[in-house]
Amino acid sequence: MMQAMKSLSLKTLGAAALAAGLLTACGSTPPTQFYTLAAPTDAGATARSAAQGPQTFIEVMPVAVPERLARPQLVVRSDATRVDVLEQERWSSPFNNELRDALAAGVAARLGAIDVSRGGRPADQPSYRINVELRDFDAMRNGQVQASFGWTITRSDDRRSAACRLTVVERVAGSANADVVAATQKAVGQAVQAIADNVRALQAGQGGQCSA
């Protein structure tokens, strides 16, 4: 009987130790951090833009990105030959979706426009279809974010269009992943402003090629 009790006690202690070990292992895994590319909206600027003329409708299509970036994880360069995919540092959705949403929200805010990408444009109103490609993107902590964008904008009624490109470089202020995100937001903000300016040019009857 004593031998059986001793065996049972050892098994109980072993199970408890295993459970404690598992809890310790789980506790050592850092929580996943989620980031967004969307910048805070300036409601006042949106209202001023909307008051300047007739309602504008935009249609921002899905954004093409390099295959290595079409994922929710942050991808940062660690040296000249290697990039790291950060499992615990993630965008709130896959990067290509996050980028499309940030561009759509930013352009709509600057123009006081309505994004009709998912439907809702009145049949008698023109819209501006925006196709964006992120051609290149590189980010390094304590370094910089460099992004190359290309896009076309086509007006739905008369088919006037503009084809544009933009390369931007933003300094990364520190070694934190949040610093990379902040620099990426600024880079996207530059693209948003350029796209909004192109839409205004088409509204004014201008078109053709542009580059920066």
Rank of each mutant, 00 (worst) to 15 (best):
A104C: 09
V107E: 05
T81L: 14
M2E: 10
S161N: 14
Y35I: 08
P54G: 11
Q125N: 12
K6E: 11
R48G: 06
V145L: 10
L37I: 07
N177E: 09
V180K: 02
A105Y: 01
D179I: 03
A212G: 14
E98V: 00
S92H: 09
A204Q: 13
A38R: 15
E170S: 12
P72G: 09
R171A: 15
E67K: 08
Y35E: 07
T46Y: 06
D79P: 07
S92L: 12
R68F: 14
A178S: 14
C26K: 10
M140H: 09
R121Y: 06
R141W: 01
R71A: 06
Q209Y: 02
R48D: 12
A17G: 08
I153E: 05
E87I: 09
D124G: 06
S161K: 12
E170H: 04
G106K: 07
E59W: 09
D79A: 11
V75M: 12
D101Y: 01
A15K: 01
V107P: 02
A102G: 02
R118C: 06
R200I: 10
G205F: 06
R141S: 13
A4K: 12
Q185F: 02
R171Y: 04
P62N: 07
L10I: 11
V188Q: 05
G150C: 03
A39S: 14
C210G: 10
A43R: 11
R90D: 02
R160V: 12
T12W: 10
Q146T: 15
T32G: 09
A191F: 00
P122D: 06
L86P: 00
E133I: 04
D79M: 10
Q125V: 10
V76N: 09
T167N: 10
A204C: 06
V199N: 03
Q144C: 05
G205S: 06
R77E: 11
N131T: 11
I58S: 02
A39F: 01
A51F: 04
A201P: 00
G53R: 10
A108P: 01
Q73P: 04
T12V: 15
S175C: 01
R118D: 13
A139F: 00
R171V: 11
T152H: 07
F57W: 13
G189K: 08
T167P: 05
R82N: 12
P66M: 05
A80F: 03
A104S: 14
R100Q: 10
G27E: 07
R48E: 12
L134M: 14
V192M: 04
L99G: 00
V192Q: 06
G27F: 08
Q185A: 07
Q206P: 00
D138M: 13
R155W: 11
A183D: 05
P40C: 12
V180L: 11
R71E: 05
G174D: 15
A182T: 12
A80P: 00
D124A: 14
